[in-house]
Design a protein around this nucleic acid. Sequence first.
RNA 1: CCCCUUGUAGUUCAAUGGAUAGAACAACGCUCUUCUAAGGCGUUGAUGUAGGUUCGAUUCCUACCAAGGGGACCA
Length: 557
Amino acid sequence: MVTESIKQAVAEALTKLGIKNPDVSLEHPEELSHGDYSTNVALRYAKELKKSPQTIAEDIIRYIVLQKIPALARAEAAAGFVNFFLAGEFFAERIQEILEKKDGFGKQDVGKGRKVVVEFSSPNIAKPFTIGHLRSTIIGDAVAKTLSFLGYSVIRDNHLGDWGTQFGKMIVAIKKWGDIQKIAENAAPVRALVDLYVCFHAEAKTNIALEDEAREWFVKLEKGDEEARGLWKQCVAWSMKEFESLYKRLGVSFDTMHGESFFEDKMRAVVEDLERKNLLKESEGARLVFFPSDSLPPLMIIKKDGGTLYATRDLATDAWRKREYGDGVIIVNETGGEQSLYFKQVFMLEEMLGWFARGERVHIGHGLTRGKEGKMSTREGNTIWLEDVLDEAVKRAEAINKETAEIVGIGALKFNDLKREAKQDTIFDWNDVLNMKGDSGPYLQYSYARAMSVIRKSPPQLRRGAEFARRGGGVTTLERLLYRFPEVVLRAGKDYAPHFIATYLIELAGAFNNWYAKERILNAGEETEYRLALTAAFAQVMKNGLWLLGIAAPEKM
RNA sequence: CCCCUUGUAGUUCAAUGGAUAGAACAACGCUCUUCUAAGGCGUUGAUGUAGGUUCGAUUCCUACCAAGGGGACCA
């Protein structure tokens, strides 16, 4: 690799100047006019060498020139940095590599032999699938895809919220005000259920007995009461039907869908394990785990009434995963950021239990999606339903082109959640969420479609795959960005941060569109083959990138 | 009261401790007889406050201010 040659040469130069074991790192300068790679060693070692950074940089360059590194066109000293400009052949080779590897360009094997469970989406049964769940679904899907691209063996898990006291409430509400027949005939049964749920909370404000009734019904459900079980199963079935149609539209799939109920009978063993290890302490009638030197607030495992909690279920879940997938499995939870303290507690406890090492438990906490007036709540009934959001997105896309509306609308929606860091809050604004121009999903899709159109219209004899010759000329921004795709994927995977891919693709598309506007790709004389190859390489990288983000890449739009 | 996260242009977002802080939207100019104008080019405009560490700070540390989220029987 050319980077290795440069690093080695710089290190040798520094050694000659009197630095023992110099530490040389290369980076891409933010500003492309500063070269393809640069190093700041001259600045870092200026004090030790008692010379100005500029002088050191010039010394380094003098040495490097003598080494005659083939892929290096030139090096220059500027503001104490040493900037390296790569030669045209380097870029031609990378273009060739992209065209040869095709869908595999960017694939790596850093995760080879490693299993990772990505838990995401995780909507609640009989509750709305909201724009908040959408965020988890989109980010989780992109993270899972990125990790699999990096060679990990990924298990995509949907941890459905299908258990808990809210089902007691649901059953009471159905029995008091609902009609199973009518709900079943309703085009949107889940909406009817949510109305009942809202109704329950409104009534419970004045009628305290309702809460007790709900608790009783949940106990019945836990004990396997036939009527309770039947109603619960019905709720699950209605919700699943709705979820499946949403996932189909979003193009998201799962390997496992073990809801919380699946782990009901697996909690006892975990609690016993905690007891055996003397980790449970009683306080005010409940049983909880206290952390060493109170580094974190205590975590409750068993309630005063003997009931279990979210934490109990999650521990049972992770214990099961460890048995099922083996030691060394990595578990990633994509949830709302408000759970970040809770996950810190769980991670610390799991480390205390010796279940997981550092870095084997990861929490991606996404920010809230807020309305303009504040948090959106199911209980109050001011929910934004995902189905409505999808329909609106498609409607807006239809205004421009009917045929691709579904793909474009959903692409816009997805990109909006992927373009920013996960932990950032987002304010829900239709114009922002469904943006079709500028830095948006459709912009990427459009750039891809345009490149594909150029290829489609080009004379077949010029489309001979990787057969082309680059005949000098200036190196374009497009070329200087294309080969970086694998580095971007690696970073996105390591940090569980798909927005690095999203922002890179925007930059890449911008470079292509700029180039496209200036050049005549099909009519440029002897360089046409290369330009076509470059276009094809762009299309390939864009396609791979869009795949990682879970955004469709239409060939025409 | 304690803890976490976030304060960047009018707005929404970027920026492994580096160079002149990048985009996009909005506004205002241009730009399709030539392969997709959902495009391209240009103009205006920003690091909450005060210190500290550093050759160099949006980034790290301290204090303050502001917003959001958490803090034992929801998840």
